[in-house]
Amino acid sequence: MDNIKLIYRKEMDAFFNSPVAYIVLLVFALITSWFFTNTFFLSNQSDLRSLFDVVPLVYLFFVPAITMGLIAREKNSGTMEFLATLPMKDSQIVIGKFLAAVSLIGVGLLFTGMHFITLLFVGTAVDIGAIISGYFGLLLVGSVYTAVGVLGSSITNNQITAFILSFLLIFIFFIMEKILVFVPQFMAAALQFISVDYHLNNISRGVIDSRNLIYFGSLIMFFLIMSTRVLEIRKWR
């Protein structure tokens, strides 16, 4: 536990001691705001649907940008050898880094809170509960994508490769429900069940079901365990 906290703190310091985090956060805030304000006043609804719809799309670039360096950079600069010979487990390293990236995504989501404030001023009968659970859903999706990004970063020692790899993996999850219409009937139901959107939609509606939580939780676990395994492979290669 202490080791996870230690890695977490180190990664957070690294994020905020470099300009990259600020730039990425700024771009995230700008892009989400652009998409949000474009449609918000047109749809004339007192909710953040237009925001919640666009965030997963922005994640597609935002999450790999955050996670690409997490492990790839340590491998590239050789510090992985230093880190991996400290008395801590590979899994603790992975979890610490994962949590730090998730926190950064949380900060990104906080920035979009300004739209929530706008909504409170201009909207009527705002369903605050649905908005809170919507944010919760976005954080969960962000966490799944981050776990995928950690895996992408652990596979290579090149940040660009890590970015592209993570992007592609995340894209698979992103596109899954959107291509349902092209999929044969018998596969559609199964595919829908493993698509992120399906579970996110449930939560966005304000229904937090244990099935959805288990879905997100197990995806995160799966990718983090995979990342740990990938790190351990270096020993045997």
Binding site: A14, S18, G78, T79, E81, F82, T85
Partner: peptide, 13 residues
């Protein structure tokens, strides 16, 4: 063990 790896990787930031 205390270990100084080859090329001495450090967190330069």
């Amino acid at each position: 063990i205390g270990y100084l790896p080859e090329l001495n990787p450090l967190y330069v930031e």
